[in-house]
Lab assay of single mutants.
Amino acid sequence: EPLWIRPDAPSRCTWQLGRPASESPHHHTAPAKSPKILPDILKKIGDTPMVRINKIGKKFGLKCELLAKCEFFNAGGSVKDRISLRMIEDAERDGTLKPGDTIIEPTSGNTGIGLALAAAVRGYRCIIVMPEKMSSEKVDVLRALGAEIVRTPTNARFDSPESHVGVAWRLKNEIPNSHILDQYRNASNPLAHYDTTADEILQQCDGKLDMLVASVGTGGTITGIARKLKEKCPGCRIIGVDPEGSILAEPEELNQTEQTTYEVEGIGYDFIPTVLDRTVVDKWFKSNDEEAFTFARMLIAQEGLLCGGSAGSTVAVAVKAAQELQEGQRCVVILPDSVRNYMTKFLSDRWMLQKGFLKEEDLTEKKPWWWHLRVQELGLSAPLTVLPTITCGHTIEILREKGFDQAPVVDEAGVILGMVTLGNMLSSLLAGKVQPSDQVGKVIYKQFKQIRLTDTLGRLSHILEMDHFALVVHEQIQYHSTGKSSQRQMVFGVVTAIDLLNFVAAQERDQK
């Protein structure tokens, strides 16, 4: 057995438009009618409502009807409940999964919650491996369901041993009777949507819809739904939504950006999952974080739909894509998950301010006199920076000697690579993860907040409520011999709460 199987392995699926269902090699399930009293909570997966979006479509000038398939009504709160249950049931049916076995899954959280929910009911041990950027709410729900959680670096490539995929496979090879159901490759993922989600949409719309818009992560949702719609409703256009920084969209030119990270969760990847059939997507749109969270908040405030950030991405694209539809036509959007997962993220004004998705003037509360002053007023001194090749031991000596707790790590040209902190280095040394002679590049981390000289002290204040420091950066445009230009970030300084307090105190003292 291989040590790991690539999540982007070539698909062996034989589905073709027009091929009889009787030739399918898979076990198919028909939607079942729910009894009045459910035998367990797993029976509350599927049969989610279709809700008309009344205000947002009109606000953006849509002539067509805009409908939302509300997947956050599933038992675990997301569309991923469907595939989690289906993968477990299919693994039980073919004898792969037996009582007492362990389920391991690399996930952005929602599939993990679905699997942990099913594992709690069915009696399996469950280990979820997820990147650090995923919300604390997801972690809390997983723990409450009895799952064990392993976190991995957000910026690790999918084929790196440190990625959530790599760590999951390492655990599988170490733990007896453990299984990775593997949402990236498992046919049960798109089949769950082909058999149930798509049929529900067709039934709820009486077979009449002209466009379907869905955000894409593993691709199982859009693949399964689109294949069924292509068979039953061939005139329906399928629109895929991919965040900026991901590479799922086609044509490839759409993916060209210097951005590699994004805040919206559960969609987009740096590889093409095996289950994603991009041939059934008629057109791709890219979405960005700001519009995703703005539209998610709009869905909550104006439509009462308590959905997550990827739902915002989907609707932001839908109001663009559906401009081509006329009166009497219908566009369906998939709202994948609930706001429950993001209470401390985009639902929080403070978080939105820190990330730059909300401006101070958007909030009406009274601010102190210094709130709208610029960061450049602080008069920061030149920063202490270190090269990635310097040793951890030497870096600790320098920081202690100069009285700093942290320093930016830059390359020879001064471009920011990340940050090192005294606390992080000492804990890594004590844990045996690094040696004093190791290069400081081994303990770089990139989960820090950046701020510009033109940003306000109010925004800085919000950042420092949650973080010990902020890195002050400025952009530099560099022209190359080819005539092309590129933008790079340079370090201007490091600012802490002490710097802000000293500035405010000094100004008030001078005024007296």
Rank of each mutant, 00 (worst) to 15 (best):
V241Y: 02
P243Y: 06
P243S: 06
L248V: 04
E252G: 08
N255M: 02
Q256G: 11
T257R: 08
T257E: 02
E258C: 13
Q259I: 15
Q259S: 02
Q259C: 09
T261C: 09
Y262E: 04
E263M: 08
E265P: 04
E265C: 02
I267E: 08
D270M: 02
F271V: 02
F271I: 02
P273Q: 12
L276Y: 07
L276D: 02
R278H: 02
R278S: 08
T279I: 10
V280H: 05
V281W: 02
V281L: 14
D282Y: 15
W284N: 02
W284H: 04
F285P: 02
K286H: 02
K286R: 02
S287R: 02
D289M: 02
E290I: 02
E290P: 12
E291P: 05
E291H: 02
E291T: 09
A292G: 08
F293T: 02
T294M: 06
A296K: 05
A296I: 02
R297N: 02
M298L: 12
Q302E: 07
E303S: 08
E303P: 02
L305K: 05
L306R: 04
G309F: 04
G312H: 07
S313V: 08
S313Y: 02
S313H: 05
T314R: 06
V315R: 07
K320D: 05
K320Y: 13
K320T: 13
A321G: 12
A321K: 02
A322P: 04
A322N: 07
Q323C: 12
L325I: 07
L325V: 02
Q326M: 13
Q326C: 08
Q326N: 09
Q329S: 05
R330M: 15
C331T: 02
P336S: 10
P336L: 04
K345S: 07
K345G: 05
F346W: 02
R350D: 07
M352R: 05
L353Y: 14
L353S: 08
L353G: 06
F357R: 06
F357I: 05
L358F: 10
E360I: 13
E361G: 11
E361A: 06
E365M: 15
K366L: 12
K366W: 09
W369F: 09
W370Q: 15
H372V: 13
H372S: 11
H372N: 11
R374I: 13
V375Y: 02
L378T: 02
L378W: 05
L380N: 02
L380A: 11
A382I: 02
I390P: 06
C392N: 06
G393R: 13
H394R: 06
T395L: 09
I396G: 10
I396A: 02
I396N: 10
E397F: 11
E397R: 14
I398S: 11
I398K: 15
L399W: 06
E401P: 15
E401S: 09
G403S: 14
Q406V: 02
P408G: 10
V409M: 13
V410M: 13
V410T: 12
E412S: 10
A413F: 12
I416C: 14
I416N: 07
I416K: 02
M419D: 12
L422Q: 06
N424I: 09
L429H: 15
K433G: 08
V434A: 14
P436T: 15
D438F: 13
Q439F: 13
K442G: 06
K442H: 10
Y445N: 07
Y445V: 11
Q447G: 06
Q447C: 14
F448M: 06
K449W: 12
Q450W: 12
I451G: 08
G458W: 13
I463F: 14
E465V: 15
M466V: 13
F469R: 05
A470Y: 02
L471W: 15
L471N: 14
L471I: 14
V472A: 12
V473N: 14
V473W: 07
E475A: 02
E475G: 15
Q476F: 13
Q476S: 07
Q476I: 12
I477L: 14
Q478R: 13
Q478I: 10
Y479K: 15
H480G: 05
H480P: 09
H480V: 09
S481L: 15
K484D: 02
S486F: 11
Q489Y: 11
V491E: 09
G493Y: 14
V494H: 02
V495K: 02
A497Y: 09
I498H: 07
D499W: 02
D499R: 04
L500F: 12
L500G: 08
F503E: 02
E508C: 11
K512T: 10
